[in-house]
Design a protein around this nucleic acid. Structure first.
Lengths: 215, 215
DNA sequence: ACCTCATCACTTACGGTGTAAGTATGTCAA
DNA sequence: TTGACATACTTACACCGTAAGTGATGAGGT
């Protein structure tokens, strides 16, 4: 009769993974241990193994969670804008969990959660007139740029990104007196890194390259 | 008198790091522990701390070792070819130690060993006529692409790369019946990944984009 | 109401990790 | 010879992932 009531508060795989995502986001990837994760959900370490195969499966599950949150934008009539929108969406999903991002990027993005994003990406490039094969290449190029820029962004502390005037001044001085001409000449720009701007610049280069070779 | 003779075979920071690189390359990053590394150089774990601050310093040192091995190519009269040559050199240095590559790519490439490569990269783009600021952006875009493609390459086993006919057939079948049209249509190309080709494709897109916006 | 059985959290244990702290052994300069 | 210094070793601690075994709880059939 009362099968919809669950008096026993039982653990589920989903609860474990969500707690894992929270823990990683709060304390970093290296802080995730089976014992701490278990404590997080009010249980002993070994109990987790009733719901996940091992620690690696936890990491995979967390990756999936983030990947599934990519909010795929609607297509427009402008293929270039569609590429920007989709790349932005991927980037936003990753940056929503910055401390988890290294995990997501260094595992192979082959989970089922990545399929809808792949489909949307391919559709966008196909709509631009590219053949199926080149669509795959184009998508992979954009993805590589995304991974490279995101990894740089979450790897560097807020130091390199933001408004750390004093640190940037110091780096600039070091570079300027490195004895290397081109580095000295660009030291002002090397000393800081606006990740959003770098990402946009790189993406525009790729889109420009695609536009140039569009059938 | 005989101060050039070293009867006592003493450990050095360099020996430790070289042994670390070998160990990582032989058994993977996760296999590197202070105890195993010490055993490798015929010493107890704690003795390493006379030469390196901690494990993280070991990883940094190994990264440096690889970065220092980038063989910077001579400039030609063709800026596009120069970009290709330099990117190829970076890629080759990384792939010379494939199991160490994840280490190199996920740490910030800010070591002194990276300065000559940076200088060469900036010189190349400057020679193409770009301003100092845009040179930095262009270099960072190429680097992001390199990091993204290399990480994909060393992350996927030989499975995804090479001539694993049966695995690729299976992946193709799964993708073809995914119910997603664009994925099904491109399943042949999604099921495999020729990393060299993907890298070249992406690099040509960026070079194309640069050519289009050259002053 | 009772028994059975599967589920799932618990306990214990093992071999591994990084490294703090203290000790011993050698090589040099005075 | 003596002291100082460098460097290797030993011990110890708190933590890790997980294999193996144990016990409580709740559901379903009789």
């Amino acid at each position: 009769m009362s099968q919809d009531v669950r008096p026993r508060e039982t653990l589920t795989r989903e609860k474990v993974l969500c707690a894992g995502l929270e823990l990683v986001e709060r304390s970093g990837v290296e802080a995730l241990s089976m014992r701490k994760l278990a404590a997080e959900v009010g249980v002993e370490a070994m109990s987790l193994y009733n719901h996940v195969a091992n620690k690696d499966a936890v990491l995979d599950g967390i990756t999936d969670l983030v990947l599934a949150r990519v909010d795929i934008p609607a297509a427009t009539s402008d293929w270039q804008q569609d590429i920007r929108n989709l790349a932005d969406a991927f980037r936003a999903a990753a940056l929503a969990y910055p401390r988890t991002t290294p995990l997501v990027l260094t595992r192979q993005l082959q989970s089922k959660s990545a399929l809808p994003v792949t489909e949307a990406a391919l559709a966008t490039v196909r709509r631009a007139g590219f053949a199926p094969e080149d669509s795959v290449h184009a998508m992979r190029a954009v993805l590589a740029l995304l991974v490279g820029t995101l990894l740089r962004e979450v790897g560097s502390g807020p130091t390199f990104s933001g408004t750390d005037q004093v640190g940037s001044r110091k780096r600039e001085a070091v570079l300027a007196s490195s004895g290397l001409d081109r580095i000295a000449e660009s030291s002002r720009f090397l000393a800081v890194c606006d990740h959003q701007r770098e990402y946009e610049f790189g993406l525009e280069l790729i889109i420009g390259g695609l536009a140039a070779r569009r059938p």
